[in-house]
Amino acid sequence: MSGPATLRKQNLAVEEGRFHHLSHLEVLESESIHILREVAAECKNPALLFSGGKDSIVLLRLAEKAFRPARFPFPLLHIDTGHNFPEVIAFRDHRVKQLGERLIVGSVEDSIKAGRVVLKSESESRNVHQSITLLDTIAEYGFDACIGGARRDEEKARAKERIFSFRDEFGQWDPKNQRPELWDLYNTKVHPGEHMRVFPISNWTELDVWQYIAQEQLEIPVIYRAHRCAVIRRGSGLLPVTHLVQPRPSEKVENIMVRFRTVGDMTCTCPVESDAVTLEQIIAETAATRITERGATRMDDQTSEASMELRKKEGYF
């Protein structure tokens, strides 16, 4: 690539310590900031999806790093299923207030009332129904880009997704016909009615996210830390007992120490048994875990081998 003279000069810069090699977290952070600035500059009307979960907590810090001292050049957007953990909603509102940014909430409850979402039963998981509310909200506000905290290491359909991922006028993802994405040159062009999903932390892993939260000393909802909780064992996982999930006659309620690795719909998000209270303990546990994040915590991903792919094609995050 470079001639010997250039190489010598470069090695000298490295040896003299002027150029230290950046750590993986520094490289990932810079890549994500670069992506956020590209969305802001090239899309007309973007929004950033903020659920109060750990990945979107990281996104917000990256947005601060990308745009402060100015305000964010986009509003925050949350799709509220009505089945969210109250601790997470409280945290969401606290964080939005702290940042002084604008939050738009799209409500699955409203979509149900308007007849856009039809449930089979009141207590069924609303995870899949979020897509309709999300697409309706995108259309209502005319967003041409939605920035989300999805990561490629989460799930095998996500592993194939672009950082700037195109959605057609029906909000659908066509995995076999994606735009090639080269270098850091993102194609942000869309026609009216189409939009982009943008994933600035595509290349981060669950462990990177926790290390970054610790490094930046970010606040997190309390349920990410180990706490005593009434749970039942259903299928291969634990489920917290709430007004939406009641024990069946054969099921025994146990009071044990658990923490959540993901926070989603209360009816299908399972905690894991854990004593990890501090961030250092959570990082140690994450580094040593033998079960994947979604395998341990999401019942809806276990329905079939292609669950996530099918949901994503329909417009899911």
Binding site: T6, V14, H21, H34, R37, E38, P69
Partner: peptide, 30 residues
Amino acid sequence: IASDINTSDFRFPVQWVCRPADPAYQDYRG
């Protein structure tokens, strides 16, 4: 892999000009 990056030619494409609306930053151009 440390020497894969070009360390000799400074190139800085401007992605975004930061001009905060906050009066405390009236003359700020980042």
